[in-house]
């Protein structure tokens, strides 16, 4: 065998490795903080604009007024945040537990799917705003209707995604399990549930912030504590700075919960290609 003798007559070309600016320390710090820089800049512009144009505080309070509101009654606001967090958390956990159980029944028992799905769909398309007053009538003002409202919003994305995850199993893997004489329980626990895990986590990205929205809605329509309740009180008093503060606290709560879900997803579903891409 002969190889063309170009190597002797032509100087070999060397590949140039592009320099890695991205991992320089200054660039790293900039990338980690740029979101906060933008937010801070927006707050400064907001503050300056409100002061310069003399916007009334009840229409559009400056960031400083909102912070002053928090400093004035920190216990009230942080206590309300804690209440809402607990209610949303309980609603979310209930949605995960019940959602996964329902999903397993739906994915494994066609009859259950046929009989129960219409009811689930009716509850799903009925706006929670319409259901929440009923919850207050049935359970009184307090934590229970709020947790249920939170549950109702978080439940559906979880059940839909988990059913998809349980059903979209590689047929070949199921065949291999049957050939090994696996029990139905083993097929569920060793193949279907692990396969559904990434689907479950991706549903959390919708369900977890949804649980917060549900809790706020429940408090809004019938409760005597929590961020949603305080919003109704503050807007009744035209305390716009308090409304802004409460909205900001709800927003922070949603962001924290969303990021916790993303963090858990990255830790627990390392094998999933979609997780690799985001990492």
């Amino acid at each position: 065998m002969t190889i063309t003798a170009d190597a002797t007559t032509k100087t070999p070309v060397k590949a140039v490795i592009p320099p890695d600016h991205r991992s320089a320390p200054a660039m790293k710090i900039f990338r980690a903080t740029r979101v906060w820089l933008v937010l801070a800049a927006a707050a400064v512009i907001w503050e300056v604009a409100v002061t310069a144009f003399d916007v009334p505080k009840y229409l559009f309070p400056a960031p400083s007024a909102i912070i002053a509101e928090l400093q004035a009654k920190p216990d009230l606001y942080l206590g309300a945040t804690l209440t809402t967090t607990i209610e949303a958390f309980l609603g979310f956990v209930a949605a995960v537990v019940i959602g996964v159980i329902f999903a397993v029944l739906i994915a494994r028992a066609p009859l259950f799917e046929e009989l129960v799905f219409p009811f689930l769909n009716i509850i799903r398309v009925t706006p929670t705003v319409a259901i929440a007053p009923l919850l207050t009538i049935w359970f009184g003002r307090g934590m229970v209707p709020v947790v249920i409202a939170s549950f109702l919003i978080a439940f559906f994305p979880i059940i839909v995604q988990t059913v998809l995850g349980l059903k979209s199993v590689d047929r070949g893997l199921i065949d291999l399990m049957r050939i090994s004489n696996a029990s139905e329980l083993a097929i569920l626990t060793k193949i279907q549930l692990p396969n559904a895990l990434p689907y479950l986590f991706s549903s959390f990205r919708v369900a977890a912030p949804g649980a917060v929205v549900g809790a706020l809605l429940g408090e809004f329509l019938g409760a005597s504590s929590g961020l949603g309740y305080l919003i109704t009180v503050a807007s009744g008093q035209l305390n716009t700075a308090a409304v802004f503060l409460l909205a900001a606290l709800s927003c922070v709560l949603g962001i924290v919960i969303f990021n916790l879900c993303v963090f858990a997803e990255k830790r627990l579903v390392k094998w999933h290609p979609a997780v690799e891409l985001q990492a």
Partner: peptide, 18 residues
């Protein structure tokens, strides 16, 4: 089949990715 006398290899590896 119940006595595990068979085993199968498909065209695709069909491994559990997790």
């Amino acid at each position: 089949r119940k006595a595990n006398k068979f085993a199968f290899v498909f065209q695709e590896p069909t491994l559990a990715p997790w």
